[in-house]
């Protein structure tokens, strides 16, 4: 006779134990903050105190006092441009590493991520030291008696470069991981069957790596939307983004309720972005064999 199965080995127990960390994470770090932010967004702040009287004023302010939407719009445009730039830049990098990296692949990917070891503030200071008025580029130009390049200093463009620099490694890593599982032989098949290289890329490589690419896009786009640090360092007055204004509500003006409403709006936009990305993924069309049985 089989030994009686102990509690731990029962499949339901194991199911619960395995699921617990994930559930706890979602409850404490996702659900709990979101719910509290949503609740706060319907409350009222006055002279650094929050009062629980329910109202819609915060939303009225955010949605109808033009400045907030202007900043949101600016953030969205920045995120779109930065994500597109990262995408165009990351694909060849990831492709090169996956295809020709050989045994140095991991090293190359780590090298790309190396700036992460230092933290965002330090990285941005470094960028400032390159692009700023007394940065390397302008110093070098000055030495040859050339005028300084204005467009690299304290404006949208500079903060765009900064944000792209911060998030590019996410994009490269996501695409690289996808390409690791990509069978490059399929490209030979396409070529023998009459596809020019560009056509082979569009009909084979791109669709088969779309999930990874979509993950990369999401990983870059969403933090871009909320970005506040980079504009502070590199953006100057014209480069201020939604995230910066949102931050102000919490650490300067003490208008937490308004900040929460801004946060809820941002969250809603992110949900839309994720929904759109999800909608583009047809699991059967990604070569993912676990689907559609």
């Amino acid at each position: 006779m089989a030994a009686p199965r102990r509690l731990f080995y029962r499949s339901e127990t194991r199911f619960l134990l395995l699921g617990l960390p994930g559930v706890m994470f979602v409850v404490f770090f996702l659900l709990f903050p979101i719910v509290s932010v949503i609740v706060f967004s319907f409350w009222r702040t006055e002279s650094y105190e929050i009062y629980a009287d329910w109202n819609l004023d915060n939303y009225r302010t955010v949605l109808f006092e033009g400045t907030y939407l202007t900043f949101l719009w600016r953030s969205i445009v920045t995120a779109v441009v930065v994500t597109a730039a990262c995408l165009v830049y990351a694909w060849p990098v990831a492709y090169f590493i996956a295809k020709y990296g050989g045994r140095y692949r991991l090293l190359l990917v780590l090298a790309l991520a190396a700036p992460f070891f230092t933290g965002a503030v330090l990285r941005l200071s470094a960028l400032q030291a390159i692009m700023g008025p007394i940065g390397v580029i302008n110093m070098a130009l000055g030495m040859f008696g050339l005028p300084a390049v204005e467009f690299l200093m304290f404006n949208k463009f500079a903060s765009g470069i900064g944000i792209a620099y911060l998030y590019l490694p996410f994009m490269v890593t996501a695409i690289y991981l996808s390409l690791l599982n990509f069978n490059f032989q399929l490209l030979n098949v396409a070529k023998v069957n009459g596809a020019r290289p560009w056509r082979a890329f569009l009909t084979v490589t791109w669709p088969l790596n779309w999930i990874g690419t979509a993950i990369g896009i999401t990983l870059v786009f969403i933090p871009c939307l909320a970005e506040s640090l980079t504009p502070t360092f590199l953006g100057g007055p014209s480069g201020k983004l939604y995230g910066s204004v949102l931050g102000l509500q919490f650490d300067q003006t003490g208008t937490w309720a308004l900040g929460s409403a801004m946060g809820v709006l941002l969250f809603a936009v992110c949900c839309v972005v994720i929904a759109v990305m999800w909608w583009t993924i047809d699991l059967r069309r990604t070569g993912f064999t676990g689907a559609g049985r």
């Binding site: 069978n183 032989q185 399929l186 023998v192 069957n193 084979v204 088969l208 069309r285 990604t286 070569g287």
Partner: peptide
């Protein structure tokens, strides 16, 4: 035309 050992059909 070419036919490969591991079929190499386009999975998508």
């Amino acid at each position: 035309g070419m036919v490969f050992q591991d079929f190499l059909l386009f999975p998508h």
